[in-house]
């Protein structure tokens, strides 16, 4: 599987190293690093299926949308900012809120009817069974 070059994360690392090298630390900008951004994706493939996991902490089940269309898996979600109650006030806010969407090109055909998804402990897990045609086949030698 091809992993694409991600100039954006390099850019953030660059900024982080500049900020970290200054004499006065500025904690809020520091958190621009990975922490606080949600939607990290991991993809695992085995002979007959692919498992896609997305980190979606604090996202309610009804705010997650998963669809497979024409060989493309689309996952979208929204993390809503909690409302402060009464006299409650912010001291620190490192967590990012908002909309998330990610599309993943599936390099094989998928049995759309059997795709399953579950959302537990802030992780969305999608299991995509491969279509019969896409599964590896053992060819017996006569």
């Amino acid at each position: 599987m091809v992993v694409r070059f991600q100039p954006v994360s390099h850019f953030f690392n660059e900024i982080d190293s500049i900020i970290n090298s200054t004499a006065v630390p500025f904690p809020f900008i520091n958190s621009i690093n990975r922490a606080g951004r949600f939607g990290g994706v991991s993809v695992k493939e085995s002979g007959d299926q692919v498992q896609v996991c997305v980190e979606l902490p604090g996202v309610a089940k009804q705010d997650v949308n998963v669809s497979v269309n024409d060989g493309i898996l689309t996952i979208s979600a929204e993390r809503r900012e909690p409302e402060l109650k009464g006299e409650e006030q912010w001291i620190r806010n490192e967590i990012t809120y908002g909309k998330f969407e990610r599309t993943i090109d599936l390099p094989f055909s998928v049995d759309v009817e059997k795709v399953s998804a579950e959302h537990e402990n802030g992780i969305l897990q999608v299991i995509l069974p491969k279509h019969e045609n896409a599964k590896p086949k053992q060819i017996s030698i006569r």
Partner: peptide, 14 residues
């Protein structure tokens, strides 16, 4: 991983 944190304060608690 150092988890991201939100902290809020009310009259009685953090």
């Amino acid at each position: 991983i150092v988890p991201a944190v939100n902290i809020t304060e009310t009259a009685k608690s953090y």
